[in-house]
């Protein structure tokens, strides 16, 4: 598939479908983008498993950190990769050894590895590259408009509020 742009429906379908996410390269440093995204996804109700060999056994935001994808004790719906484009290839190889396979592999903003994506897609895994799930969630829920970002979406429907009210929107059905 074309990885230069994604339909909103494709991204929305993924964010709506996955429940468990393994985040490779999650940081314990509260000013790093991977920490932000971890915190945001937890807040949106996803179960997130931080993967970081340097922090294995410790926890980040209350979640136990694992050294590798294989150590995660539950089926992983989505692998979210915070590594550089080259290193992402090995992460995809590792993800493709999981049983069951993840439904989705997501590479963060600036991360793109087309060869690895081809392998994953051949195995039936949906791919997203060079995107951030926090930004995409914020865009599709309308939250990102609060910081003036062009969501590139138009809708005449009310935004959906999460149970905690106005400052929390959801893309859930």
């Amino acid at each position: 598939m074309n990885h230069d742009s994604y339909d909103d429906a494709y991204v929305r379908g993924i964010l709506d479908d996955v429940k468990t996410i393994a985040m490779v390269g999650a940081s314990a440093n509260s000013i790093r983008p991977s920490y932000f995204v971890l915190k945001y996804l937890l807040d949106k109700g996803y179960k997130v498993f931080p993967i970081n060999p340097g922090h294995a056994g410790k926890d980040i935001l209350g979640q136990t950190v694992y050294a590798s994808l294989a150590d995660v004790p539950e089926p992983i719906d989505m692998v979210d990769i915070f590594r550089n484009s080259e290193a992402a290839g090995a992460v995809v190889d590792e993800a493709l050894t999981l049983d069951p396979l993840p439904k989705v592999i997501w590479m963060q903003l600036t991360v793109r590895n087309d060869a690895a994506a081809g392998k994953a897609e051949a195995a039936g895994v949906r791919m997203i590259m060079n995107r951030c799930p926090k930004i995409e969630y914020g865009r599709l829920s309308g939250e990102i408009g609060w910081v003036g970002v062009n969501s590139r979406t138009l809708s005449s429907k009310r935004p959906k509020l999460a149970s905690r009210g106005f400052q929390h929107r959801t893309i859930g059905k």
Partner: peptide, 20 residues
């Protein structure tokens, strides 16, 4: 770390619509 409104000097939902 989260999107949201704090204080109208920094952001406001009406102003945000104009921005987008």
């Amino acid at each position: 770390q989260a999107f949201g409104n704090i204080y109208t000097r920094i952001g406001n939902p009406t102003c945000a619509v104009l921005e987008e």
